[in-house]
Nucleic acid binder design. Structure first.
Length: 108
DNA sequence: CGTGTGACTCGGT
DNA sequence: GACCGAGCCACAC
């Protein structure tokens, strides 16, 4: 996903997609965690925007990124869809919330 | 270059 | 638990 020649998307966004695409199936990550990996411990919102503008919508598993409190957060195609997909991947969602203690994907 | 906005997060009420 | 306000960051105007 690295934009080598053209600058369709910002470098920041490219990194976000890269990190997002490496999330394994059945696991999830949070906006804040991705931001931290980019060196922006408080740029969770910026990460969220990058995913919102996500030109790789179906390619990048942006649905595996949720809020730090376990809420599914948002989704370009609607949070309902997001939940559906996550459940399909084997993630159990109770009350629109995900058990981060079980499904959170932490990589160093 | 200043402002507003949002798929965020945290702390207080 | 829900609502609110403040802080942070990238991006569009």
């Amino acid at each position: 996903m690295s934009n080598t020649s053209s600058t369709k998307v910002s470098v920041f966004a490219s990194r976000v997609y890269e990190l997002t695409s490496m999330i394994p199936e059945g696991k999830v990550s949070t906006y804040g965690r991705l931001a931290a990996k980019l060196g922006l411990k408080k740029g969770a919102q910026a990460v969220g925007q990058a995913l919102h503008y996500n030109p790789f919508a179906p390619i990048v598993p942006c649905h595996r990124v949720v809020r730090s409190d376990g809420s599914v957060g948002g989704f370009a195609f609607g949070s309902e869809q997001k939940i559906k997909i996550l459940r399909k991947e084997g993630i159990e969602i109770l009350n629109g919330k995900i058990d981060l203690n079980i499904y959170s994907f932490k990589q160093k």
